[in-house]
């Protein structure tokens, strides 16, 4: 097989036995698993960004620290700030949700 999803599916399907949980809530433990997996994926992305920064710095003939320290002002700064706000709004949407907890 050569596809990544196919490979992952074969691996996941081969696991046997019961999965013993540690937290009191199965749902909480599953969310923790998703969060940790996303943390690892973030590390993978950071690794890729770091590699690109170093390559671009090399092409520009300057230290990578200088490339990373480029500051933006005016419209570009506002655009970047708005992008950060939007990311946080997406990530923390549940904290902003106006709906009350439904009764059981």
């Amino acid at each position: 097989m050569s596809g990544r999803v196919e490979a992952l599916t074969a691996l996941i399907a081969s696991a046997r036995g019961e999965r013993k949980q540690s937290l009191e809530s199965r749902e909480a433990e599953e969310v923790l698993n998703v969060a940790l997996a996303l943390t690892v994926e973030l590390a993978v992305s950071n690794d890729r960004i770091d590699r690109l920064e170093r390559l671009v710095a090399e092409l520009r003939g300057e230290p990578v620290e200088e490339l990373r320290d480029i500051r933006y002002e005016g419209d570009v700064a506002r655009e970047r700030s708005e992008a950060t706000d939007a990311l946080l709004t997406r990530a923390l949407r549940i904290l902003l949700d106006p709906r009350a907890q439904a009764a059981e």
């Binding site: 050569s2 596809g3 490979a7 691996l11 540690s22 698993n33 997996a37």
Partner: peptide
């Protein structure tokens, strides 16, 4: 809970390239 998740991620991280 985190250690169990990390142990399972070991197998995901090595199993994907193996099956691929």
């Amino acid at each position: 809970a985190a250690n169990r998740a990390a142990q399972e991620m070991i197998w995901v991280s090595v199993g994907e390239p193996i099956y691929r």
